[in-house]
């Protein structure tokens, strides 16, 4: 259990870290950045699983199961697409992104 205040701290620090890290991404990589962050919000799958596991009635169970499906597609699709995009970037020497 984390207190609400601690959560607020985490949120504020995450905002600062997020702005720091993301403002350093050059515009050439904005599309992969967007599809990668797209995959990151697939983290909602963790939330969906937590709700499914603690479901006490079938309404909650099926609602959360719907969330599990959505979130899994979001997450997996996001990573696959990002990897594909980044695989296209290459240098003059023929070197590809690792």
């Amino acid at each position: 259990m984390v207190s609400f205040l601690a959560e607020a701290y985490i949120f504020v620090l995450a905002v600062l870290a997020g702005f720091q890290v993301i403002s350093k991404v050059p515009s050439i990589l904005h599309t992969p950045l967007m599809s990668a962050t797209n995959a990151i919000h697939g983290i909602i799958l963790v939330g969906a699983l937590l709700v499914v596991f603690s479901a006490h009635n079938s309404g909650v169970f099926w609602t959360a199961l719907g969330a599990v499906l959505f979130a899994t597609m979001n997450l997996v699709g996001g990573f696959v697409v990002t990897d594909r995009i980044l695989g296209l970037f290459r240098t003059d020497g023929g070197g590809r992104s690792e």
Partner: peptide, 29 residues
């Protein structure tokens, strides 16, 4: 992203807050 972060407050899960906020920051920028 922000909706995922808000879920972190509901479920009291710091990982959701951090990941969701990262996405929110990226989208905002």
């Amino acid at each position: 992203g922000l909706s995922a972060a808000a879920t972190g407050f509901v479920l009291q899960n710091p990982l959701l807050i951090i990941a969701g906020t990262l996405v929110g920051a990226s989208g905002t920028i």
